[in-house]
Structures are given as C-alpha cells and as structure tokens.
Nucleic acid binder design. Structure first.
Lengths: 145, 145
DNA sequence: CGACACATGCAATACAGTTGCATATAAAGA
DNA sequence: TCTTTATATGCAACTGTATTGCATGTGTCG
C-alpha cells in the first residue's frame, strides 16, 4: 500500500516505541496491497523470525487503537488489517470473496458515497464508515465454471 | 421491522417447514426494530420456552441461506441478524455502538450510495453490500459526560 | 551498576460458532 | 390406527479466533 511511508516515524508519531516486532507487523501490513488476517501476519513473520501470536495480536490492537491501522470485518470470523486512511491513502471499500477468503481493496470512488449531510444530524459520534461487498471473485467463478 | 409479514408463509415460500422454533426465531428477528445477536435471540427465546443454542444457530444459518434473514457483521466478534431486504424493506446501513454493542438501523437514504456503474464493470459476482458506521451512540456519549 | 518501565513469551482461558451423533417429532403410506 | 421415513432438535465435544495473567527479557535513565 505504501512503500513511501516511513514506518518507524509513523510509530513514533503516535507515541509508540518502534520496536522490531512493531515495525515488522506494520511493514507487512503496509507493503501489502490488500488486507491480511492476524494469522496471515503471524504465519509470515514467524517464518522469517519466530514471534508469538499473542504478541502479534497485542501489536495489532495497539496499532488500531493509535489509528494507524484499520481493523476490517469480513462477514467471516477473523478480522483483517490494513493501513488506516491518511493524507496519502483515501478510505475505500473492500471486496470479500466468500469462497476463498481473499479480501481486495476497491477504488475509493467505486461506491461514490455521500454522507456528510447525514453525519451532521446524527446524535452520536461517528468514528468510522465501513463498506464491504461480499461475493465470489473472478478466480473462484472460473473454478466453478 | 415488519408486523405485516406473515412469517409462516414466508418460511413456506422459501421451502422451509414452518416449525415452531423456526417461527419463533423469525418472529423475534422480524418484530424487532434493530438487529440482534444469536445469543440475544437464544436468551430471549430460552426464557419463554427452552431451546438449545445449537438449534438457534442452525435455524439462523438456514434463514440466511434462504435469503430471508441477513447476517450483519459488527466489527465485534458476534454477527447480528435482521430481516433481509425485500419489496417492503429497502437495504439500509447500520450504526454500531462500540461502547454498548447496540446496533441500529439507519435510513436507506442516509448514505446515498451509487454503485451500479461500478458493479457493471466488476469481474466477480457481487452478492451483498454491507455498510456500517461505527462510533458511540448518544446514550453512551451522555454517560461519559 | 541498579532500578524501573514496558515489550514479549507462554499457558490457560474466554467466546462464538460448528460437528457428530442420538433422540424426538411430524408427515406419508399401509 | 400403526409403521415407516424424513427431518428437526438436543447434547456433548470440538474448532478457530482472540484475550488474560503472570513470568521473563530488554532497553533506558539515573
């Protein structure tokens, strides 16, 4: 998603020590073009250098809490994680393939949503808008003829 | 959501025997103005007449599979369930309070989304669009001053 | 060097949902 | 009515995902 970001600085900017594991988790999320599950992240990191899965969960919680990573729900059981929107990366909807579990990012313009008028009359506080399309991706369509 | 629906007939129309438990599950979902979790549904039903939670899960799976109930994800761990859109009930976004877990239905016009142009160029199959706002509801805002 | 804060690991636990198999119930036919 | 058959339900055990408690490791400041 963002080979231009300085992840070390990003961590520091939200008040987190840039430990090796935090950097590793943030890099794998940031360098990927689609969101990953916690176990995707753990498995990948664990192969190159052992890391406990609890550590991964705790780091993900931290990054989400600090607002630099987004937790994206899937309709399946596991949450997925991607870089949070910022100046360089607009918020965007996702497509989730209910057959293979792959989640893809869609263009920010794909759904052309307009909700500022609604937000201005809503009595609660709105932190986040999540839009997700569910269906079958083209690869899985092909497999089933 | 729909005190006008004949739930018995709705079950039959999708090819399901209208057993007592299926009716009870569908009624509690249909008569509620906001989506409920599986355990909400089980707890409520169990109070009036004992029912196994596995039975509730299986009935929910059936109703979702047949397309008369929608499984709505929350950002939390548990799925919520509401009547699926039909002629009488338009699809609509939801608001999820991350503090108390209450999920509310929003007006179908709230987000004013337009995606038919996108859908017509998408190479996969799209089954469902889910839109969810996360935040703090007005009651929880009040509690925390 | 010593003390402290905090990052990480490990084991146990919690939570939501699923599976296998036994039993109950209801519809269909003799 | 009785028997057969299909399927709905219950119960116990299990799975995958995430969380908690506590012990240990690591890095920083005096």
């Amino acid at each position: 998603m963002c080979i231009h970001c300085d992840y070390k600085e990003l961590l520091v900017s939200v008040g987190l020590d840039p430990t090796r594991n935090r950097l590793r988790v943030l890099e794998i999320i940031g360098n990927n073009s689609f969101p990953l599950s916690a176990s995707d992240i753990h498995d990948t990191l664990d192969r190159s250098r052992p890391i406990n899965r609890v550590t991964v969960y705790r780091i993900l919680d931290l990054l989400v809490e600090k607002g630099i990573v987004d937790r994206i729900s899937t309709g399946g059981r596991a949450a997925y994680y991607g870089l949070a929107p910022n100046e360089r990366h607009q918020a965007h909807p996702h497509f989730y393939c209910t057959s293979c579990g792959q989640m893809d990012c869609l263009s920010p313009q794909a759904l052309n949503v307009e909700f500022s008028r609604f937000a201005s009359t809503f009595p609660g506080r709105i932190d986040k808008l999540e839009m997700r399309l569910d269906g079958i991706c083209k690869n899985c369509l092909k497999k089933s003829h």
